[in-house]
């Protein structure tokens, strides 16, 4: 038992370097970044191939893509309202990226979301977007004034929220992916064949997509809250 724990800790703790770019004395590229590039390339190529030939009378693929994008727009418009429409492409991007990153484990790659740097980066970008949306919607003074709402006593807590919100976003995503990884490794250690399959479906597909959904859902809720004029 102690062996497994040590082994897993070693597996988790090392920063896997996929390759090193041989300039400036070698820039190491972590595997999460390399996988992210792969995901980006696939998504963008997919979009270029299928979206380019869009017609007014849609084919099957076009209908599927339109439904998906339409669903993203409907979903976020429902939370943000019409004035939040400009944030939808970013939220959609994050949704697609986290969704792909979480299920990439099915193809034998390491999910980039298992790297704390990725989830932390996403969470920091989310909180920057949230506060930017607040400033854009209320003006700098209105944004600053919103910290003492509903009453002045709340100022420290509201300031603390700037840290807590992204931290919870980051850790929820990371914890889920990490937990899934640990459980999967344990199951594989006990029964290496067939039994891990349903668990893999749950953790890699269902939980992965669910966490992507939860991440953007909460981010959009924070944005909506930040834009809210009271």
């Amino acid at each position: 038992m102690k062996d497994i724990a040590a082994e897993m800790y070693a597996m988790l703790n090392e920063t896997k370097i996929a390759f090193t770019v041989p300039i400036f004395g070698g820039i190491p590229i972590p595997s999460s970044v390399a996988v992210t590039w792969g995901i980006m390339a696939v998504i963008v190529l997919f979009c270029i191939i299928f979206v380019r030939g869009f017609k007014l009378m849609p084919g099957r693929m076009q209908t599927a893509i339109e439904m998906f994008v339409g669903w993203i727009y409907d979903f976020f418009t429902g939370i943000l309202g019409e004035k939040g429409r400009k944030y939808i492409p970013y939220l959609g991007t994050v949704l697609i990226y986290i969704g792909c990153a979480n299920i990439v484990g099915l193809f034998g790659l390491i999910p980039p979301t298992k790297d704390l740097n990725v989830t932390a980066g996403l969470a920091i970008m989310s909180i920057v977007l949230v506060e930017a949306a607040g400033i854009r919607s209320k003006g700098t003074r209105g944004w600053l004034r919103s910290f003492k709402k509903p009453m002045a006593v709340m100022v420290p807590f509201n300031i603390l929220e700037i840290v807590i919100k992204p931290l919870s976003l980051c850790m929820r995503l990371f914890g889920n992916v990490l937990g899934a990884f640990v459980i999967m490794e344990l199951i594989k250690a006990v029964v290496p064949a067939i039994v891990p399959l349903p668990f893999s479906f749950y953790f890699d597909i269902f939980d992965g997509l669910l966490q992507a959904y939860v991440f953007v859902f909460l981010t959009s809720l924070y944005i909506s809250e930040a834009m809210d004029e009271d």
């Binding site: 999460s32 980006m40 270029i48 492409p89 991007t93 790297d115 740097n117 980066g121 970008m125």
Partner: peptide, 20 residues
């Protein structure tokens, strides 16, 4: 390496905005 995340997401966002 958190910087990579920022760069990657922003690039992906720009590309998806143009192509999707």
């Amino acid at each position: 390496s958190i910087i990579w995340t920022f760069v990657n997401i922003i690039v992906l966002f720009l590309l998806l905005r143009i192509f999707l």
